[in-house]
Design a protein around this nucleic acid. Structure first.
Lengths: 193, 193
DNA sequence: CTACCGTGCAACAAATTGTTCTATAGGAGG
DNA sequence: CCTCCTATAGAACAATTTGTTGCACGGTAG
């Protein structure tokens, strides 16, 4: 038997509003009352869907904090594969809800085990993508296995996140070009000696 | 005329408790009620010191979120100067309240201009310290001015912060050694060509 | 058409937030 | 030691928020 369409509609409208509140005003303002006022859905209905403030916030978080998986390209030269992958990552940070929400997930993670899980899982995916790019380059013989891949991966991902989330600096094409240049030069010069 | 010692004692006891709550349970739980229960100070007294929850939280934040300034060493070889500076930074992240509080400051910064100021000011200091180390190395002729110092500084600081705040990975001596090794090798290989 | 179930609404209890008043007691100065 | 000033404790209070419950209405599936 299918789900009542009213359930789905309510949930969707509520989470839409919760998401907006979360991004605009912070997790602290995501409450049944606020969502009710924003959507017209009655408080009691919201409470039936999410029993307390915590689960409502969790739901709002979870909606945004599951960014799309990025399948890496591994056919071109290292530089363009890396540039493409980090470009997508940068785009997500700049132009998707995930970019706006990430700082709050990071903060929640310091006291909340579940938020920490969200972060670590997500980072695991990202690291895997970057690693695939380097591995392919090694297989192609473009760089050798001497390259400290672990560290390079961390630097590759850390820089854009640090710049955006912590320093609140701009993240643009020029910066990324330089970043990728440096990463590639490290990989090349550490390679084959 | 001096300040009433009772004022000072109350403020100190209250902020001590507020700080502990902030670190253990998150900013959300820093309230007049909670601090009152933790210290025995009456709620009305706390309200006279901090008119609302916001200013109490601000006070608690501000108490921790002003990390000590680190004057860099610039006399030894690049590697040991850098190792020492980042070692102190890593120690602060691992063993001071600042390390525990930083994620919450980061999150606050996404909706709160003042928190953003705290972060950017702080990072400016850190960047300046690291830059001093590289500049000294250039003056000594250990590396040349060709080195992309800006990028190196960002990577130097980004990696430990990313690792600690975002990935919640350990930050130990071995990791730092590798990190400094890589930074130095970048500086050296980009140097003098 | 009917039985079911999600919704809206209103009333409600409980906890939290912030205010105000009074009594008490500590500290500074003579 | 005495007095004035002022910080604190405590209680009473209103307002808001959080969460619960019972009931009537209306959409949905069979």
């Amino acid at each position: 038997m299918k789900e009542d369409p009213r359930l789905i509609a309510t949930r969707q409208a509520a989470l839409d509003a919760a998401q907006k509140i979360l991004m605009d005003e912070g997790v602290l303002h995501v409450t049944h009352g606020a969502v009710s006022k924003a959507t017209g859905i009655s408080r009691s209905t919201l409470y039936r869907h999410w029993a307390d403030a915590r689960s409502l916030r969790d739901a709002a978080f979870r909606r945004i904090a599951t960014p799309p998986n990025i399948p890496p390209r591994t056919d071109g030269p290292l530089r363009s594969d890396l540039r493409w992958l980090l470009g997508v990552l940068m785009g997500a940070l700049n132009h998707t809800p995930w970019g706006q929400i990430a700082p709050q997930v990071v903060a929640a993670a310091s006291t909340d085990a579940e938020a920490r899980l969200v972060i670590t899982e997500f980072m695991k995916d990202r690291f895997a993508s970057v690693e695939a790019v380097f591995s392919a380059a090694i297989v192609r013989g473009e760089i050798t296995a001497d390259v400290p891949v672990e560290q390079l991966i961390e630097l590759a991902v850390a820089a854009p996140y640090f710049r955006k989330l912590i320093r609140h600096e701009t993240l643009d094409e020029d910066w990324l070009d330089q970043h990728v240049d440096l990463l590639c030069s490290i990989a090349k010069t550490n390679s084959g000696q």
